[in-house]
Design a protein around this nucleic acid. Structure first.
Lengths: 183, 183
DNA sequence: TCGCAGTATATCTGGTAGACATGTATCTGA
DNA sequence: TCAGATACATGTCTACCAGATATACTGCGA
């Protein structure tokens, strides 16, 4: 699918903020980009080796035995900009909840209700996490040039989660009506 | 990631509506589930073979030479219900546009503006497609037991696309302000 | 000091997308 | 009528990627 691996872009971008170990990289991506991006160890470590061979990052010994910290090189920064300029790869949609709901008469209205209720809970949790992220970002004094962009991505999550919530409420009402009408 | 392949579920569900060839299956998934699901030929054909060996579908000669039409069996319908009852697999998020926007100061406000503008266009197109799908579904006389569920999934797409649109407009304004402020 | 939680690295399996290769049937316009 | 375009149809191959699993070290509290 991708012309070039998306993992490389995410890894280089994260390392452009500060040098990190592979483990810390994954934590950072989960914490800061978790709402719209994810990376697994199975991708991160091979990517780091690849990027090191290409000269885009360099490794130096970490604080613990057997741990290396990776730092972006000058050519790595150039490569990062190049990758950023490429058109974003659109990952095909796969929403298991909507797939099941579409064939809802196979499952029954009651089970569908449960599915949508879980989806609603998820949106609520996301909204809480985003509120926390917004607070943290607005309180942070450092990195003022990055802040406006980070707030835009947080806002994207908020719009999306609020839409999910509104849809779930509307849909739960419809499903209740279906259940009341004897399924 | 998945306990059991998601493709099997989608294929069985689609065949529960009407028998189809692999090619038609892909068309149907694209047309009716395209807003929240996708399948490639590379998944569909192996899945059909697998499901046939397991006795969940049966093949009979299609209208053209070398084409087979697949039909759900009784045990296939049981398996479909079982798969439907499993908890939906949550695919990890990967939004390349937001990844780039988060590191927007690497790319510059102008390039970010373009990225968001494209995203806005996409949402507009989706909204138009969903309006068409809603019209078609509401006009269709057949399948009254499926219709309410189908309308719920269409509504999910509409909520999501409208949220994307609102966010894009808000964000384009912010980016314009950044550009005006000398990036 | 024992065990547990957290840090850290690495590999393996299998699901999946998309490109590609191949061929057939049907339609359209010259 | 026939050539080429278009739609139908099947299948394979490569590479991306997630998640599970294995391994080991470290620091802390009981």
């Amino acid at each position: 699918m991708p012309r070039t691996t998306q993992t490389d872009l995410a890894v280089l971008a994260a390392l452009s903020v500060t040098p990190m170990t592979g483990y810390a990289l994954r934590e950072a991506i989960l914490d800061h980009l978790g709402a719209f991006w994810s990376e697994s160890f199975g991708q991160i470590y091979p990517a780091l080796s690849r990027l090191r061979e290409a000269g885009y990052v360099e490794a130096f010994d970490g604080e613990r035995t057997g741990s290396s910290t990776y730092r972006l090189t000058a050519s790595g920064r150039t490569q990062l900009v190049d990758l950023m300029r490429e058109a974003p790869v659109r990952t095909p949609p796969r929403n298991g909840m909507l797939l099941r709901l579409f064939f809802g008469d196979v499952l029954g209205a009651r089970a569908c209700r449960e599915l949508v209720a879980e989806y609603r809970d998820l949106a609520t949790r996301q909204l809480a996490e985003l509120a926390e992220a917004r607070r943290a970002t607005e309180a942070d004094d450092a990195g003022t040039s990055q802040r406006p962009y980070q707030l835009m991505t947080i806002s994207a999550g908020e719009h999306s989660a609020r839409a999910a919530l509104a849809w779930a409420d509307e849909t739960l009402a419809s499903l209740d009506a279906l259940v009341a009408a004897g399924r």
